[in-house]
Nucleic acid binder design. Structure first.
Lengths: 223, 223
DNA sequence: AACCTACAGTAACATTTATCACAGAAGATT
DNA sequence: AATCTTCTGTGATAAATGTTACTGTAGGTT
């Protein structure tokens, strides 16, 4: 990242604080400075598994840039998509498990190159008492992730596969901010825990209804 | 509840503190005294709906005695069972929503006469900073309820109805501490979001496999 | 061009779950 | 006892989903 003369480093640091403030607008300035000081910034390429089921968790993960998908793994190797994590969010599981250094119940995969801030577990807990804005962020993270999982329960408990597929596509396009889903039918099937043929059939029906246009490795959402 | 001469009231108070200490062994003595002072003890009969979907939440609920079932409601009126709350536990949703005074995402029904301690929302938040043992209890509540919901996702995402039914019966008998399930097939079907006929058929198969004995309004678990 | 591989489409069939229809059994009520 | 209601069992059928097998096509590789 460029040369390392003092002015540049200072500038980078300044920019970092500015960007943290932008991504986490509710964090106090002291908290941001503390995060700067104690957290470690790391990059991961798309495809990286950030956390595996059964692994012990040593850090709380704040998303600065990029996207992560959170999966629940089945015994047979299924990878059921639960939700996305985006900049400004944090992994609730990593917070919850961190507090007791428990095993992860989920799998986290990078789907768009990410920059994350890793916070060591002792600090995560310590800051709860010291920084009101951290406390509120953690509680809000619990709340919103819990709600998201409840929505997942809704989908699989009350809805049929065609509705779940529509929801899946909509959420994908919301997450990437575009109307093209660049995934193969097989990938979608895996994340919905169904088979490729079922996804192909349902997509074809959606195309006939005028909801999508199907291309190779791409689904365009029309409505 | 008996007469109201001073000695009796003192004794009751003493007993209450003792029993709180037994049910919530990790609470500090100061915390228990604070709860005594600020919380309000209430009884509800089996069948009472303690909390409805969409309702605003004004209290955090600690279970002292009895049992509560937590449901996710479908748009069509389905009542999908998520988990049980038992003495020593608290409603995670009431904590999470309380913090922001949000709407409830779930429905809570008393299934065995309960005594609960209602904690006003401002205190729930305030105590987080003042009582370490309260803080730890709240975090542990989030963690264990989150895990429980993840297990629900597992069940509906990866398992078929016969496995889910077995799981349902096992959990029921764990909760009531006996091997008889005193529910009609219709009630079970509703909580699994399936139909009565399916439950009847699957139970019959389980009986043929020697897993249960079927009586009217009762299922005995044999293994 | 010839070949290879991953992806997509689809028919046929199996399995699971849902729905409809009806009958009988257990309890409750009169 | 006669009646009524609720619960349970079960066959027939429908609908949704899963599986197998095969085909074609797009794009990359040789």
């Amino acid at each position: 990242m460029g040369n390392s003369t003092w002015p540049d480093v200072t500038k980078l640091l300044y920019n970092m604080q500015q960007s943290l403030k932008t991504i986490f607008p509710n964090f106090s300035n002291e908290l941001i400075a503390t995060i700067e000081e104690n957290g470690s910034l790391q990059d991961f390429k798309a495809g990286t598994i950030l956390m595996r089921t059964g692994q012990y968790i040593k850090n709380t993960v704040l998303i600065i840039k990029g996207k992560i998908k959170i999966y629940r793994e089945g015994e047979d190797g299924g990878e059921f998509l639960m939700y996305y994590l985006q900049p400004g969010q944090a992994c609730a599981i990593s917070m919850i498990c961190t507090a007791k250094s428990e095993k992860s119940q989920i799998m986290a995969k990078v789907v768009e190159d990410v920059t994350v801030m890793m916070i060591p577990l002792q600090l995560m807990d310590k800051w709860m008492m010291e920084h009101r804005s951290w406390y509120e962020f953690v509680i809000e993270t619990y709340r919103s992730r819990f709600e998201e999982v409840l929505e997942v329960v809704d989908n699989i408990a009350f809805r049929s596969m065609d509705e779940r597929l529509e929801f899946y596509l909509k959420r994908h396009s919301d997450a990437c901010g575009c109307s093209e889903v660049n995934l193969s039918h097989q990938e979608i099937a895996t994340e919905l825990n169904t088979s490729r043929e079922v996804v192909s059939r349902l997509l074809k029906k959606m195309e006939q209804r005028g909801l999508v246009k199907l291309n190779r490795n791409q689904i365009e959402l029309l409505k």
